[in-house]
Amino acid sequence: MRRQLALMGLVMGLAMGAPVMAQDTNPPPNCPVFQGEADGIRTSYYMGEGLAYFNAGQYNNAALSFSCIVRVIDDTYVPAYMSRASTYMRQRDYQRAMEDYTRAIELDGELIAAINNRGVVQAALQEYEAAAEDFDRAIEVDPDFIAAYNNRSILYALAGEYEQAITLLEDGIARSGIDRVLTQYRDPNRAADAPAIPFDPIHANAYALLGIMYSAQALEQYNDYLFLSNQQNGFFPDERIQSAAGALESRFNFEMRLDDGTWMLVARYDATAGQ
């Protein structure tokens, strides 16, 4: 199967600590349309129906349509698992999403969208070690899959391993070639009317993450300085550093926090590329 991945430039709004749903033990759904027809016809119908519901934000209906495929028509049809997993992610039902990505990986061990996205789901469930394994595996399967570098770097940062995060992000930047794009744009001899240089915004995202990593490192240094100041009488810390540390602390507690999933990149699965 060919794998063409288009990355969603959007970040996910994953809420940590979302309720974990029990495994689906419901009876199979009622799927009467095109009953008796070939599986391909029925599968096409429910994929079309499910995707239309999904695009309209009717996630319960979408999940039912995809369930018709995997529970009634063809339990090996990967696009239905991938689509249903996306649906569950929108519903923040991470447990079910993980189960569907796992099933997709069982059916196609090198399906990078499933591997990466399962990592994102594992991170949402705070299963950071398992998530790291998935991102590592994604990079192993496709070293040019830059989203996994970004996602893995976030996990390094959450573990306080900023050096590893920075190294990985720089590796991703070099591999994606976004650094060369930047150099070309910054070339003082570049003509004002020179044609735009196309690049993937996901690749540029690595610079944002690098900035975050360095900021997090800076906060560590500030905190070391402030910690020392508390150990000795008469050592009054510089107020500017106190202020800078406070501002960074606040940002990492709120809009810049790394553990809410908003920096994770979800891969969009392109079901037209294979099957």
Partner: peptide, 22 residues
Amino acid sequence: TPQISNAAASYYIGLGNALFSR
């Protein structure tokens, strides 16, 4: 463009039914 490969005509019927229902 269908978001699956080898989509049968029924893909569009499913799409249409979902759109109609909303």
